[in-house]
Amino acid sequence: MTASFHATRAHSFNAAAAQYAANRPSYPPALFDAVEDLAGRSLEGARVVDVGAGTGIATALLHGRGAEVVAVEPGEGMAAQFRHTNPGIPIVRGNGNQLPLADACADFVTYAQAWHWTEPVHAVPEALRVLRPGGALTLWWNTSALDVPWIDAQTERIRRHFGADGVVDRNGSGMHSALADPTGRLHFAHRRVRWSRDVPVDTHLANISSHSIFLVQDEESTEAFLAEERDQLLTVFPGGIVEEIYVVELLVATGS
């Protein structure tokens, strides 16, 4: 993936912020239990910086666990949707490569579905700068459960239609880049959390088409794929309710 295409995809969400907020999956309570377990501290009362917050799906859940959360989001459209959805949570414009925050101000720096848009050579030192002693850099991705036959088949159809990069934020590839710590100061713990949700087929299609690889395509190509995909899904789920199954890939890193 070229740098310019990567940037185009990163900015593509702004025009689809409402679609993203309405249809993307959330995260299960067990994920936040795992975060606390691996970090060795509670989210309640913790100062959390949620970077690449998007429309605030994860931010709101962190807030609900009793954390004092500040969101960081680079995109104008996503930030506007965040403010609409989460009017009581502060948000600042910025990105993980250059956080607009003071030194040692956070107990957690979190990235939900967002680390793969950063440049780790910059983002890791920035996270370490912002974290207090004993703080944790916490990264997670909702990834598709590829051991489920219909999900594996759909992922392959997306790959064939859009190319090899079509599932970059659906198969946990961002996790592997995170493990390449440029500072050598991070100690990673890894956990998987499996969960599912049942949604109407049209919600599922709106969910997958809110991913960046869809958003940068021409409308005709996307609509053609979604029409064919709807027919495929209805053969598996004739009642029109899709069971989406996810494996959250969680990394919690503490510094030395």
Results as ranks from 00 to 15, higher is better:
I151N: 06
V168N: 07
D202Y: 08
G94R: 06
V51D: 11
A30L: 03
G54I: 12
D37N: 14
Q113P: 01
I208V: 15
T254R: 12
S209C: 09
T110R: 05
R129T: 05
D198E: 12
Y20T: 00
I89D: 10
Q19L: 11
E249G: 02
R197C: 13
P25S: 12
N95H: 14
Y27W: 09
H176V: 07
A127I: 06
T203C: 07
L38H: 13
V236P: 02
S256R: 13
T203A: 13
T8V: 02
T222D: 05
T85M: 06
R65G: 05
G163I: 01
R194P: 00
N207W: 11
H11R: 15
N86M: 03
L226M: 13
R93W: 00
G56R: 12
H122P: 00
D50F: 05
P238K: 01
N23V: 03
E243C: 01
A178V: 00
N171P: 00
R157F: 05
F108G: 02
T183Y: 02
T203S: 15
M1Y: 01
L146W: 04
A127H: 08
Y20Q: 04
G135K: 12
D202A: 01
A127D: 10
E220M: 00
V167R: 07
N14Q: 14
D202T: 09
E119H: 09
T222A: 15
A53S: 14
G135S: 14
A22C: 02
L226V: 13
S12K: 01
E228C: 06
S4L: 14
A136D: 08
Q217A: 12
Y246Q: 11
A224T: 15
A58H: 10
A71R: 06
P125M: 14
A30N: 06
P28E: 10
A206F: 10
D231Y: 04
A60Q: 13
V199L: 07
N14G: 15
V193I: 14
E228G: 15
R160G: 00
P182A: 05
G77Q: 04
N97G: 13
L250E: 11
V168L: 08
A39P: 08
A206I: 07
P90E: 07
V216A: 11
F32H: 12
A58C: 08
V70Y: 04
E223L: 15
S209L: 03
A17D: 03
I245N: 06
V124H: 05
V252S: 08
G134Y: 10
P125Q: 05
N23P: 06
E44R: 12
G135D: 12
V69M: 06
L128W: 07
S256I: 03
I89R: 03
A227L: 10
D181H: 04
G54E: 10
I89V: 13
V252H: 10
V248K: 00
N95K: 08
L215Y: 09
P125E: 13
D202P: 00
S26C: 01
A114M: 03
W115Y: 15
V51F: 11
